[in-house]
């Protein structure tokens, strides 16, 4: 019995990978949002799962009482509440639907590889283009109306830059998103300099490219599953806590750090199981944060730890 969120693309992709398996797929209500975002924002929670378990009466169709949830739903999933309300036990399956058949073949055991979120070239292009496209359209429309002469150039430039920056992101010099952005700008600036010195005219293209690159790069980390948002801590330091009615408070993780209390740890390894970045390792009967610098503060471990040994400090 597998569970996923009600986002059309998710359901289609998961179904494709389940096609040769003998299983049920429950689609729990999540306001049409994907698993990870919905789990973080409270739209894909124990309430969603309890609701679909009860209203679908799936319990009448199968004898066992074990649910396989998407690993990335862990940040918002109170599995104890599901157990208490419905009697179903939960375990977290692999991150990617394509690993589900292998996961089942291995008798519901995950390899570390299956626990990791990757963000490879196709994913980067997919996420980047998807999130930037609607706004790019708006800007293109504005240009089209007010500054027709720039329109073609900007459209081509923007397209090329989006693809280039996203494709090359891990290879751009610099560790944080901002360092990477800076190096992109320096590179473009150097191009502008060379262009002007060699007697070229029309440096508008370069300026345009720099502006567009800044727009793309300003919070690239935020859209990705494996980098922290770059903008959160900066805005916080500047004292920006809200714009009009939009108050920034939901992600209490601003500058926060996940810490593990080894005294409380009972060695259940759930944190190791749900961490999408492979931060935790098991040393004997205790978990240790072996790769703490990789943490993106998704809070999956905090939610899942049964003894509250993991917490967030500011």
């Amino acid at each position: 019995m597998l569970v996923t969120s009600n986002f059309d693309l998710t359901v289609k992709r998961v179904s494709k990978h389940l096609k040769d398996l003998d299983c049920y797929l429950l689609v729990a209500p999540s306001h049409g949002i994907n698993v990870w975002c919905a789990a973080e924002a409270g739209h894909f929670s124990a309430h969603s799962v309890i609701s679909v378990l009860k209203t679908s009466r799936i319990g009448e169709k199968v004898k066992h009482r074990t649910l396989i949830l998407p690993q990335l739903s862990a940040p918002g999933m109170d599995t104890e509440m599901i157990k208490k309300e419905t009697g179903w036990r939960c375990r977290f399956g692999p991150v990617y639907a394509r690993d589900i058949p292998e996961y089942i073949r291995r008798d519901f055991k995950k390899t570390d590889e299956m626990r990791r979120v990757k963000f490879d070239l196709m994913d980067r292009l997919d996420a980047g283009i998807g999130s930037i496209f609607p706004f790019y359209l708006i800007i293109a429309a504005l240009l089209f109306v007010f500054k027709r002469a720039w329109f073609q150039e900007a459209a081509v430039l923007g397209g090329v830059l989006v693809v280039l920056m996203l494709a090359l992101y891990p290879y751009l010099p610099g560790r944080s998103g901002y360092a990477k952005l800076l190096s992109t700008e320096v590179f473009l600036g150097a191009g502008l300099l060379v262009h002007v010195m060699t007697g070229g005219s029309g440096y508008g293209t370069f300026i345009g490219a720099m502006v567009i690159a800044a727009m793309i790069g300003i919070d690239f980390g935020g859209i990705s599953p494996i980098y922290k948002s770059d903008l959160d801590p900066i805005l916080d330091r500047l004292g920006v806590r809200g714009i009009g009615p939009v108050v920034f408070e939901g992600r209490g993780a601003i500058g926060g750090k996940v810490v593990l209390d080894p005294e409380k740890c009972i060695g259940c390894a759930l944190c190791h199981d749900v961490c999408p970045k492979g931060v935790y390792a098991m040393e004997g009967k205790k978990a240790v944060m072996a790769r703490g610098e990789e943490c993106v503060v998704c809070r999956a471990c905090i939610t899942q730890c049964p003894v509250e040994a993991i917490s967030l400090t500011s």
Partner: peptide
């Protein structure tokens, strides 16, 4: 930047419901 605005705006939906 845009995804950032999305995120922030969505988090505060309950207060504007």
């Amino acid at each position: 930047m845009f995804s950032y605005v999305y995120m922030k705006v969505l988090e505060t939906v309950p207060r504007r419901y």
